[in-house]
């Protein structure tokens, strides 16, 4: 390493996880839309619960898109702000996944597997992002 050039601090593991999480989320969203169509047609819901749960799925996609974009940008530009928003937006995403895993009206086995995979991803990203944030602050000081 040259003395004058700073070593990049961006986290490669975090970037790998964000990359795969993007594809995973797209798949999850597509499957959930199909499953909710199926559940809406085949199963009887209590009044006015189906739209609420479907909104959760759409919100998941929106939050995840914003979160992963901010995470990528923050990680690549070594900006603390992006990474902190990434960590903060983890909370709604985990809450939605927990809801879809445990508290929705009908939980299919398929959804259990998918939601657990998603929570693993988000959890690993959370810790990697905190580690990356530590590196970025150390450099800023």
């Amino acid at each position: 390493m040259d003395a004058g050039v700073a070593k990049p601090q961006s986290s490669l593991p975090l970037q790998i996880f964000i990359y795969f999480d993007g594809y995973w989320s797209a798949l999850y969203f597509a499957i959930e839309v199909l499953l909710f169509t199926y559940k809406g047609v085949v199963l009887r819901y209590p009044p006015s619960t189906w739209p609420g749960e479907f909104t959760m799925v759409v919100l998941f996609a929106v939050f995840q898109k914003i979160r992963l974009y901010l995470g990528t940008a923050g990680n690549k530009t070594e900006q603390l702000g992006g990474i902190l928003w990434f960590v903060l937006l983890t909370i709604p995403v985990v809450l939605i996944l927990m809801y879809l895993l445990e508290f929705q009206v009908y939980v299919l086995r398929f959804e259990v597997f998918l939601a657990i995979t998603g929570i693993c991803f988000v959890g690993v990203e959370f810790f990697l992002a905190l580690i990356a944030a530590c590196f970025f602050t150390r450099r800023a000081v």
Partner: peptide
């Protein structure tokens, strides 16, 4: 590869 591996795991 990633998605299909997950799919087979499922």
């Amino acid at each position: 590869r990633f998605l299909v591996t997950l799919g087979q795991m499922l």
